[in-house]
Design a protein around this nucleic acid. Sequence first.
DNA 1: CGTGTGACTGGGC
DNA 2: GGCCCAGCCACAC
Length: 96
Amino acid sequence: MLSDFAEVVLSYAETVPAGRVTTYGSIADAIGRGSARNVGQVMSSHGREVPWWRVVRANGSLPSFLIVDAQEHWIEESTPTRLGAVDVAHAFWSGN
DNA sequence: CGTGTGACTGGGC
DNA sequence: GGCCCAGCCACAC
């Protein structure tokens, strides 16, 4: 059973288009609930059901145990990256 | 109801 | 560039 909060976070993640990314803090901001940490917690427990590689840290990175898999997706979706992390300045998606 | 926890973040040094 | 720290807030105990 997912909490309402988790459901909102996951559905937002689903709306991020391929080749683009959004950040933990931005999601919390966009949905008007919780904080970046909460979003991270949701991704930790339920991220497997959504395109989790399109949800990154504010600096474009992800925790080490995911970075390798994420890079494969980024390459496949032509997401702009730089030094192994997403180039947030170019790939950031604000819900538009 | 109090505490601890965390795929986080921005600021200070 | 890096490290440390306080603030953040939903959730499980």
